[in-house]
Simulated assay, not measured.
Amino acid sequence: MADKLAKYRSKRDASRTPEPVPQQHPEQGDDRAFVIQEHHARSLHWDLRLERDGVLVSWAVPKGLPADPKVNHLAVHTEDHPMEYLDFHGEIPSGEYGAGSMTIWDTGTYDTEKWSEREVKVVLHGERAQGRYVLFRTDGKNWMIHRMDPPAVDPLPPLEPMLPVKRAKLPRDQEAYAFEFAWGGRRVLVHVDGGRTDLAREFPWLRPMAEAFGSRSAVLDGEIVELGGAEILVCTDLLYDDGHALVARPFTERRAALDALDISGARWQTAPSWPAQAQPIRQAAREQGLPGIVGKRLDSPYEPGPSKWWAFIPT
């Protein structure tokens, strides 16, 4: 009988990596277990592993499992892994194959609907990954993964920045607003999906921030501003979060969800927001040479273009 783990062993030195490198021939189990590992290697990806005939048949999925049946994701078929990999997590040393941090993203059981050399249909029963998926082989060695269930997420609506309307005076009902600095930078909507953002093509320094999101999808509203001689992203609103559209929800809910993400780094941060404190915030903006402040009604939805819900008050 062929050694299904020969290729796996050939790529690893048991004295140098904490990964399991069993020498014995694998024993067949019940073909029900699966694990998905988040792998911060040279390029962030997720490893889907399905128990089959005593080994874990594996695919590397660069953008994670697709949540929407309209979108297929690349799945790179890799070498079979030992069953001990079901609960492996840790740091694979630099210089070793697959070097980087690996954590368990989800684990559970699965049902097999079809298994052939070109097509694998399964139903996943995990805490985070649930539903029917098919892995199918395309031309050559490439594979794709497709979700067969109805969408498990809200569709991403067309989005344009919401803009404040200029006012000469502060609103009378200041307790109904939260006030923020108007930074005077370039307004951007940051789409993050699969640990990546298209905005990194223009601003490569955003790649680590996007990678920190892991498999979480999000759309951030913010500004690219220059502070201390460096460009940074200042995040001011959250429009889409982990499969849920937030644009119809009040600003207070969106802001709480944004704060919960704890976006903070050397070149990205969450903008401060102060409810009902217009006068001191306006004075602070004036002292810092900022163009003004923005008042956002606490009950405001997010709508494209100029909106009466938001007010720009110059300093």
Rank of each mutant, 00 (worst) to 15 (best):
K4N: 04
Y8M: 07
A14T: 09
P20G: 00
H25W: 05
G29E: 13
R32I: 12
I36H: 03
I36P: 09
H39I: 15
R49W: 10
D53M: 00
G54F: 08
S58T: 13
K63D: 15
G64V: 12
L65P: 07
H77D: 04
H81N: 10
E84D: 15
G90H: 03
I92C: 06
S101I: 02
M102L: 15
I104M: 08
T109Q: 02
Y110S: 03
T112G: 01
E113V: 06
K114C: 11
E119F: 00
V122C: 11
V123Y: 06
R128C: 07
Q130P: 01
N142H: 13
P150D: 13
E160F: 09
P164H: 07
K166C: 03
R172G: 15
D173M: 00
Q174E: 15
Y177E: 07
F181Y: 10
R187G: 11
P208F: 11
E226F: 11
T236W: 02
Y240P: 11
Y240H: 09
D241A: 14
H244A: 15
A245K: 12
L246C: 09
T252H: 10
A257W: 07
G265Q: 01
W274L: 08
A276D: 03
Q283H: 00
G289N: 09
D299G: 11
K308T: 14
W310R: 13
T315F: 00
